[in-house]
Design a protein around this nucleic acid. Structure first.
Length: 492
RNA sequence: CGGGGUGUGGCGCAGUUGGCUAGCGCAUCUGGUUUGGGACCAGAGGGUCGAGUGUUCGAGUCACUUCACCCCGACCA
């Protein structure tokens, strides 16, 4: 039996297809780089959506929806933006199919060619700004704060489950402001919303910072990011917030009359997070037994597994469990009783562990007699026996503790893999071993590019709230002066 | 698009220098015993070996062609 367990552990240490598929989160479909998100995986996404949506509303944003198809001509307006996306777009050229006149099957009707091709949105800046043009006339119309939950398509050359799929679900916020200061402040507000969400809900320690010019969003003046470290030491850009300046306003001619009657271009931001966060969750917390979900995002927080021999015992235990469930539901926890009669307890234990359920309760004849419950926590895999009467309170604080512990564990891991580095030879040696290196950088794109070419490492961010190091030094590569250290890492 | 790899029951794989009836594990179905950490025994069903062409008395195995997928790179959230 020990052999069997070892074999499984080897399988699950492969983070992508194996863990994800076997964890019942997703199956890769036959379509290139697309994903089926199964109900359990989708439930996690819905949880994320719910929390984030609430946080957005607190900032004053409102949800809206814009079309999936964007006329090609919209893309010709913002040159820099298009250069960043045009290479990877799906294009609709026809609107009808017909029976194949030369044989069996269906073909595209050549008569049904579109006058103007439609682009399946890779992001919605162009269509949203075309719309904002009509919404914004006066300073009284500002700010405009819209968010959209939708899917987008980017025809990437290389895909990875959850991290870079051809089609993905996301949220994109687009705001318009009267002043640069207000827009910039909004960009910061939103990156901080993401950071708070990552840290408090996902138990994911992230570094907030600026992107270097090379890594900036196409068309942005400044890109703010939250960067996370996965368990292999690689970096994952988990969310971004862009200060777009007046680039889009100028390209789409969005002007407003200020309080003195002067026409001005608006100032813009955009911000988004995607189903990539699901990948972050899996890779940051998962272990050899499967997923480890933070209680705040777990679709099921507590699962109950009955242990019995006879039908009489079974009904008595299930009855007791229903009672316990009521108490837990009243305490605000999501609970499921696994009353499947065809599976043995050990199998169920393993299955729920795979799904990452934070807490498992087992009740058997012994517990029934003694008025106790066996409580198992997923993060540490520890078991303890708790008296029934104090269970609800115990579960509440246990869930809080798990939420904190997962964060602490991830933070400790990251801290132990971030170090300062001032020597180029040492940099080359260490960067491939799964570390973030805090190094001096001369601020030029050329140096960054050279470092990338030689080591695959990029500047993950210029940090503003963790690992901030404002000290004079010399660039790790060029030796030129540098005012501060930045975070280098190998990214997904 | 370059470099490498893999295609054999639902899943994961073995299959020798070509050889006769294509195997194994998991899963499934039936019956029984089990049930506090992924049960066991007995039996059963399920495959035109990715596709095509060729070599051969004979091809899962060799050659060529083609398709699909995976990994590495360029691109990227």
């Amino acid at each position: 039996m020990a052999k069997e367990v070892t074999k499984r552990a080897e399988n699950y240490s492969q983070w992508y297809s194996d863990l994800v598929v076997k964890a019942d989160l997703a199956e890769q479909s036959a379509v290139r780089g697309c994903m089926v998100i199964k109900p359990y995986g989708y439930a996690i996404w819905e949880k994320m959506q719910g929390v984030l949506d609430g946080m957005f509303k607190e900032t004053g944003a409102k949800n809206a929806y814009f079309p999936l198809f964007i006329p090609k001509s919209f893309f010709s307006r913002e040159a820099e933006h298009v250069a960043g996306f045009a290479k990877e777009c799906a294009v609709v050229t026809h609107h009808r199919l017909m029976n194949n006149p030369d044989g069996p099957g269906i073909v595209v009707d050549p008569e049904a060619r579109l006058e103007e091709e439609l682009i399946v949105r890779p992001t919605s800046e162009t269509i949203i700004w075309s719309t904002y043009k009509n919404w914004i006339k006066s300073w009284r119309d500002l700010p405009v704060l819209c968010n959209q939950w939708c899917n987008v398509v980017r025809w990437e050359m290389r895909t990875r489950p959850f991290l870079r799929t051809t089609e993905f679900l996301w949220q994109e916020g687009h705001t318009a402001h009267a002043t640069a200061e207000e827009a910039e402040e909004k960009a910061w507000e939103m990156v901080n919303v993401y950071a708070k969400f990552a840290r408090e809900c996902m138990s994911l320690p992230v570094i907030v910072g600026h992107k270097s010019p090379n890594e900036r969003f196409a068309g942005a003046l400044d890109t703010l990011t939250i960067e996370a470290m996965m368990q292999d030491g690689k970096a994952l850009q988990s969310g971004t917030s862009h200060f777009l300046g007046q680039n889009f306003a100028k390209s789409f001619d969005v002007k407003f009359a200020d309080s003195e009657g002067n026409l001005q271009y608006v100032w813009a931001t955009s911000w988004g997070v995607s189903t990539r966060l699901m990948g972050a969750l899996i890779m940051a917390h998962g272990d050899d037994c499967g997923l480890v979900l933070p209680p705040a995002l777990a679709p099921i927080q507590v699962v109950m597994v009955p242990i019995y021999k006879t039908p009489e015992e079974r009904s008595a235990i299930i009855e007791k469990m229903e009672e316990v469930k009521k108490g837990l539901l009243a305490g605000g926890h999501s609970v499921e009783i696994d009353d499947r009669d065809t599976l043995r307890p050990g199998f169920k234990f393993a299955e729920w562990e795979l799904k990452g359920v934070p807490v498992r309760l087992a009740i058997g004849p012994r517990d029934l007699e003694g008025g106790t419950v066996e409580v198992h926590r997923r993060d540490t895999m520890e078991k303890q026996t708790v008296p029934l009467e104090s269970l609800v309170g115990a579960i509440g604080s246990l869930l809080d503790d798990i939420q904190r512990n997962i964060y602490a564990k991830a933070l400790a891991f990251r801290d132990s893999n971030v170090e300062k580095c001032d020597d180029w030879e040492e940099f080359k040696e260490k960067i491939g071993t799964g570390k973030f290196l805090l190094c001096h950088w001369d601020g030029t794109a050329e140096t960054e590019q050279k470092i990338k070419d030689e080591t695959k490492a990029t500047i993950r961010c210029i940090p503003v709230d963790s690992y901030v190091c404002e000290e004079e030094g010399r660039d790790i590569y060029s030796g030129k002066p540098s005012p501060r250290r930045v975070v280098f890492g190998i990214a997904y």
